[in-house]
Computed example of a mutant assay.
Amino acid sequence: MKYRNILLVDDDADDAEIFGMALHAIDLKIKYSIQNNALDALKMLQSPKKTPDIIFLDYHMPYLDGSEFLKLLRKIKAVEKIPVVLYSGHSGGLVKEAAAKFEKVQVLKKQHSLKDLTALLQRILLPAQAS
């Protein structure tokens, strides 16, 4: 598996719970942490105890939106190259525009069905094996 240590930055507790359930449905060995505040997430990432392999970021957060978060994240040497998935209820307009401005950023529309979210996360976390 390409990504074993995942950071979710999302202020919606229900979405975070479904996200965790989907990860465990994929693989119980996946480690993930949740930050419900973008400012706290940036603070943690400035001196991470363990660097995440990938960050899932809710675009619409209090204090900083996804674009502002990405600008600040890419200035932190320890984590500047980490792939980010903008994880949002809206996958158009501002979200796609923000993703296009940065390397290693993709967009994933939030799914409220555990089955649908699990399938989407599997495609990201378990890329097809080359034959």
Rank of each mutant, 00 (worst) to 15 (best):
Q129M: 09
L42A: 06
K104Y: 08
V9M: 07
E103F: 08
S67K: 13
P62V: 00
A25G: 06
K31S: 08
L86C: 02
D14P: 03
D27K: 01
L45D: 05
D14L: 15
A38H: 02
G93N: 11
N5R: 13
A22W: 07
P127M: 07
D12H: 14
S47V: 04
G20T: 07
G92Y: 13
M1S: 10
G92D: 15
I82N: 02
K31G: 01
D11T: 05
A13L: 14
I82T: 11
L86H: 01
V85R: 03
P83R: 03
L121M: 08
F69I: 03
E80F: 06
L126W: 04
K75S: 12
V105S: 11
I6A: 03
A13S: 15
S91D: 15
K2L: 12
R4F: 02
D58K: 07
K50Y: 01
D11I: 04
V9Y: 03
K77I: 06
L86P: 00
L108K: 11
L8H: 05
K81P: 00
I55S: 04
L120D: 15
A78F: 03
L114T: 12
F56K: 01
F19W: 09
D116Y: 14
K115P: 00
L70M: 14
V85T: 12
L7I: 03
L126F: 08
F69S: 04
K81D: 13
K81V: 05
D27V: 00
I76E: 09
Y59F: 15
L86Q: 02
Y87Q: 03
L23Q: 03
V107N: 04
M1C: 05
R123H: 09
H112I: 13
K77Y: 07
F102T: 08
V107A: 04
Q129V: 11
P127A: 05
I30T: 02
E68R: 10
F56G: 00
L23S: 02
H90S: 14
A38D: 04
A98Q: 02
Y63I: 09
P127L: 07
A16W: 07
E103Q: 14
E97W: 09
